[in-house]
Design a protein around this nucleic acid. Structure first.
Ligand SMILES: [Mn+2]
Ligand SMILES: [Mn+2]
Ligand SMILES: [Zn+2]
Ligand SMILES: [Zn+2]
Lengths: 137, 137
DNA sequence: AAGGCTCTTTAGAATGATTTTAAACTAGAT
DNA sequence: ATCTAGTTTAAAATCATTCTAAAGAGCCTT
């Protein structure tokens, strides 16, 4: 199976029509590597790959992929959106100083006790962000 | 001690000159009640109190109070900033559906294990956000 | 109490990430 | 090949937040 067909199939399974733009972005983001991207960094990657996708479509695609569960949005600041290519359950270190986000191995955080969700609600996800700063000794 | 003097003193201790605007905002936000505000909701409160503070100053003051440790910023989305008048260590439920943020009692979440911070870094804060959604049975 | 220095506030303009628009395009079905 | 609904596009609009530079106000010194 050609790589293009592979990602097209992945998009179909996610309920997204495999357009040229979506397949190109899927090939960049859904190849199994775990990383964190912004609309801007993704646009750079696209350009480096010799392609072009309009700004609006980059945003739309990131939102659609997230909605479809192919990406995950990470909330650490509100300057711009961060997307995580790792949709498995895991947590993050965040260093505000240089806006650096680092994955924490899945078993690095153990939640021994969680509160019950408020009446009529259920827990959808638990996000742990450990804010760190460089030690100044 | 008059309430105004009380908040002025609090601001001085935080290293902030107690201007009319800062004292007014401190009286609204630093009275011991635990709640979550936005620049917008705070501006409404100020107006309701029959006062006026310019938009820029509302933003500046929220940022300065946060920097001074009198408020805490909560990160649950990147539509706009949320500020918490409770600076004690506690966590949150967040219901994206209607953008509702609810405090979790300090002992509601127990972290049995935390990873070591990366070399040369130390942990500054641990934020736990439990995303919830209404059960539809 | 007045003067002066510095910090602060102000209205308005600027910024910048993101969304919206309406027209041109295309994937997929017939 | 044709049709249609969904998609992409460049450009404009949105909107929370920051910046500007001029006017105002704490606060320290006389
Ligand atoms: Mn609270
Ligand atoms: Mn913005
Ligand atoms: Zn991650
Ligand atoms: Zn809170």
């Amino acid at each position: 199976m050609t790589p293009k067909a592979h990602f097209a199939e992945k998009l179909r399974l996610a309920g997204l029509r495999p357009t040229r733009q979506r397949v190109a972005i899927a090939a960049l983001l859904l190849d199994g590597r775990h990383r964190h991207v912004t609309a801007d960094s993704l646009t750079e990657e696209i350009t480096t790959a010799g392609l072009h996708v309009s700004g609006g479509t980059v945003y739309n695609t990131l939102n659609q992929f997230t909605e479809a569960g192919l990406l995950r949005r990470v909330m650490v600041h509100n300057d711009y959106s961060l997307f995580d290519t790792n949709t498995d359950h895991h947590h993050h270190f965040y260093e505000a100083e240089n806006d650096q986000l680092v994955d924490i191995p899945h078993d690095g955080v153990i939640l021994a006790q969680l509160p019950a969700a408020p009446d009529g609600h259920e827990i959808k996800a638990v996000d742990v962000v450990i804010h760190i700063q460089s030690k100044n000794p």
